[in-house]
Design a protein around this nucleic acid. Structure first.
Lengths: 334, 334
DNA sequence: TTGTAAGCGTTATCAC
DNA sequence: GTGATAACGCTTACAA
């Protein structure tokens, strides 16, 4: 069934049907009612391909994330999808994994599907060391707007919304120091762009408080609870004393709690622990985790707003910062 | 840029370009090479709308889930998306929430986008009480195949892959009883289709072991850790004795552990606890949770396989069952 | 207010 | 092995 069937049955031309369909006002109320009636009767829906062919848009946004089984990224996908739908845009989701070629291929694919914009979630799409690995993003931006959620890349038609991760970790580390902690371990998941920002917050806080920086106190653990616990065990066995653990993800904070539990250390009295992302894990542990709320939802809403602004030609900011919240629970006493 | 530009530059007709594009063999090697060269040079990509208009397919599958921030559903989205991509299908994701009208609208929207099939994740799309609320699914199946992940609906062109939730809960409850537990509380998240199956497994295990069924021992708690803990507290305060808690989700098992912790009950000696879904939570607690692995990945792979079978006209099963695994950790001693 | 007709970029069916 | 050309179903000038 197509627009001709409707026009025939309604006794009007296809142009009139099209006008009704697109809310064009140059149709008499009477004709409009008649056409609508027929459309309903026939259960007619316009063919998006034909429409897209003419208009060259399908009101669809490509969303890319490296791993949508990650709670942080999954949340972002959820908020973005919701908010885009509010603006009558659909989403095509791509989970790319971490392989650079896959990322390129998926982006290519989205481009070839003629999406109207692309949102990249998380900073795993950026390569801080080899800028040539970011070229594919800059290239893509020549065709359509590229939106970055919690990462940043300089470039035309590229927009970014970020949580101020550095400030968040700085604040929390500083608060630990001010409350008397001197030996603070920092465990992180990865050296992504936001991973670097977080680490830098930790380092700056030490510096400002003239606390010497020890490389043994900074360790990568992926998102591995066990690995975090074991690393702290290793430190302990080797005679290192520490009284606080700051992490870049709640999972690592869970590992720290398990370490404390194994050794019978009181939390937060003997060991303070801070998580990141304020995920479900933060409320699942005993005691419950002090954690940093990285404001995914705000980030996503901002991203979609900016994108809509780009579409209708408004002046929009290229870069937006949002401040994290520190959610104090029972693993710290600052 | 379009196929005409390519044909002009290559000095052939658009038909030849199209043949090259679609791997048609009726092209001389020489011409083919020349066309490919020009395509590469121009960076030409075929317009999917025009293609879709002719073929009436866009090699795209609609995926619907009620809440992709839920770890179980997010995992499913991830596996499905991955596996569909392997088969050269893209995914459009819709997170519908639980409102029935939203569900209907989103499904309508996917249909209007001319997707080639629709996958519904989880049993929240089915209404066991009012079958008229399932009619929209049966309707949709008149146009394209509908795949159900972990739910079931009788109907033409509807296919389902399910985890045998009933058997899983039965087995685990039975094991608890056989190991000496007599007063087993069952906490669940919702009365979805799979929620009912799980409950039924619990009830059957009690029945088979001639243990009387107490309505106070069965309680709905959503996914709320606190609520689970508080309900157990209430039972305790009212003098009810129980020595095991079976749950329909790890989050509720976490609540049970918090309850035990508050009262100083030893786990598993004084209180056994069983979770469900074997999520990250199961490894985050102390002691770590015995949980049921509901085999999302297998479910998803099966679903995609079946769908591909439907597309190429193979005989495929309408309904597939997969058996859950019981992951024994430290909150049980059976 | 309405209708006619061109154009969007493919694929597929013919001829040759 | 290759080239014209119709067809897919819509939107939108332009005419009436």
């Amino acid at each position: 069934m197509n627009i001709y069937d409707v026009s025939k049955k309604a006794g009007v031309s296809i142009a009139t049907v099209s006008r009704v369909l697109n809310g064009n006002n140059n149709v008499s109320e009477k004709t409009k009612a008649r056409v609508l009636e027929v459309i309903d009767e026939l259960g007619y829906t316009p063919n998006v391909f034909a429409r897209g062919l003419g208009l060259n848009t399908m009101k669809t946004i490509g969303i890319m994330c490296t791993d949508c089984s990650d709670p942080y990224l999954a949340n972002a996908v959820y908020y973005l999808e919701q908010d885009l739908k509010r603006h009558e845009y659909d989403s095509i989701l791509c989970c790319t994994g971490n392989n650079i070629d896959n990322k390129k291929n998926y982006l290519e694919l989205l481009l070839s599907k003629r999406v109207d914009g692309i949102i990249l979630i998380g900073s795993k799409f950026l390569d801080a060391d080899f800028s040539e690995n970011n070229a594919f993003i800059i290239d893509a931006a020549k065709n359509i707007p590229i939106m970055l959620v919690n990462s940043y890349l300089e470039g035309n038609n590229i927009y970014s919304a970020q949580c101020d991760d550095e400030a968040a970790v700085y604040t929390v580390t500083d608060a630990l120091i001010k409350s008397g902690r001197k030996n603070i371990v920092y465990l992180y998941t990865s050296m992504s762009q936001s991973g670097r920002n977080k680490l830098s917050g930790y380092e700056k806080a030490l510096e400002m408080n003239r606390i010497p920086h020890r490389k043994e106190f900074v360790q990568m653990c992926n998102k591995d609870i066990q690995r975090a616990k074991e690393y702290l065990n290793t430190l302990h066995e080797n005679g290192y004393k520490f009284d606080a653990v700051v992490t870049s993800d709640d999972s690592l904070a869970v590992g720290a709690l398990k370490y404390a539990n194994e050794h019978g250390f009181k939390v937060p009295e003997e060991l303070s622990v801070v998580g990141y992302n304020d995920s479900i894990l933060a409320q699942a542990t005993e005691p419950e985790l002090t954690s940093i709320d990285s404001k995914v939802q705000s980030l996503c809403i901002t991203t979609v707003n900016t994108l809509m602004g780009v579409f209708n030609g408004s002046d929009v900011p290229t870069r937006t910062y949002i401040t994290a919240d520190i959610i104090k629970r029972n693993t710290t006493n600052f």
